[in-house]
Nucleic acid binder design. Structure first.
Lengths: 232, 232
DNA sequence: TCCAATTAATGTCTCTTTGACACAATCATT
DNA sequence: AATGATTGTGTCAAAGAGACATTAATTGGA
């Protein structure tokens, strides 16, 4: 990959799409990482992503989903653009731009597939600093984590880290894991009711004490944003 | 611009950087538009932007600022990434990605320069639908406006539409213009005090009634985000 | 000169949402 | 049956925004 691939007035930047796919597993925040099989940074852990295939992908959103599906066999229920990261230094091949998406998934939805391969793994966000991470992906993950933490304070997005049916207790631990501090169960229940995003299931499940009510997301609802943050 | 400029496995998407520069002028929200001198969409109004010059620009942020400076002769005090827009259809030359920035400036800071040229103008956001707008720039401006409206509810960013010294009355009008409804002066004052972002100037100005206190942004302060929105 | 109109700034009460925490309900284990 | 654990409810306080009255300062006109 040299610089002569460009006949325009301007040399084109390298353009890639990467995704930060989070889940909460065993009360800690994990990110999906892929062991790189190619240069640069071969053998390092990196974010799932790659080049746009303009013959296949209608938009960069589709690129992100396609690349995630290659690695996990499923598409996450929640995905949004985080931001683009660019510089002349972040890729040894030259000026590069990566458009980063930020996605959430229930660990159960991908575990069966991930267990069969070695080059795709859930990595604890707190263990990243002890690993060799490609490009500026460690920094990118930190930015994605900050965005997720902010979103958890005014929206119900963390619910996308849970399976179809879930309890309030599960949602509470997911949120607490994401924001790194405990919240009031009462406040969570109030928001669940106010959002009208969820329906109760006619079934309860064991949880060490009194049986817990199961909830699910109503079909075709939008994510509600609250006008107030939970307190930091 | 044909497809043979690429020798990689993947054809590269077209990659551009555009900016939505807002200001508030005469109690209405304006966006800086440029009459296009080149194909495609020659003669249409479009957002200021263009290709990255990888020999000059360290990052895409610098591209956005460089292009804005070419059109206004100054760099805005506030700029942030909005998001990338992509598709095979948005540019007749093929699959294209534009990374859009969203910036604010005081009208006074650019008016002298703009008055000397014909191809750069402040256009009222409500008059866009009656003009010929290039690409999907009209849609992009709508998205930028929504983001600005949201930000105005939980931060003090609208202050960057005002000159160095400003009154509470001026800030109130700017915010009301942005969000399209009136707010309580008292709420604004409470936020000005709580944010600790501003200092009073030892000078007052006429405003048709009692003299108004002048404020300015303290040097090197960060924008404060409130934990609660003003009500919609 | 005085008064009305106008805009700025403050005082205060209400309303909404969250935090804190006590208390009740329901399950398993002993 | 008693204990512990977890789920769920009731209630009061705190914080911040809305509503709006009141006071302050200035201009312009009768």
């Amino acid at each position: 990959m040299t610089e002569e691939y460009d006949i325009n007035q301007f040399k084109n930047p390298l353009f890639t799409v990467d995704s930060v796919l989070f889940t909460v597993k065993e009360a800690s925040l994990k990110v999906l990482m892929v062991k790189r099989a190619n240069q640069p940074f071969i053998g390092y852990w990196g974010l799932p992503g790659g080049f746009v295939d303009i013959d296949i992908d209608e938009t960069t959103d589709k690129t992100a989903l396609r690349k995630l599906k290659e690695k996990t066999s499923v598409e996450p229920l929640y995905i949004e653009q985080l931001q683009a990261f660019s510089s002349k230094d972040r890729d040894p091949r030259g000026f590069s731009v990566t458009l980063v998406y930020f996605a959430l998934i229930a660990e159960q939805d991908v575990s069966s597939h991930i267990d069969t391969v070695e080059d795709v793994q859930w990595i604890d966000v707190n263990q990243l600093k002890s690993l060799s991470i490609a490009f500026d992906h460690q920094y990118i993950i930190e930015q994605a984590q900050l965005r997720l933490q902010q979103k958890a304070l005014y929206s119900m997005v963390p619910v996308y880290c849970l399976p179809e049916y879930f309890t309030i207790g599960q949602l509470k631990t997911v949120i607490e894991t994401i924001i790194g501090k405990s919240i009031q169960r009462k406040s969570l229940i109030r928001r669940i009711e106010a959002s009208e995003m969820f329906a109760t299931i006619d079934e309860k499940v064991k949880s060490g004490g009194r049986l817990a009510q199961l909830y699910k997301i109503k079909p075709d609802v939008d994510i509600v944003n609250f006008e107030r943050n939970l307190s930091v």
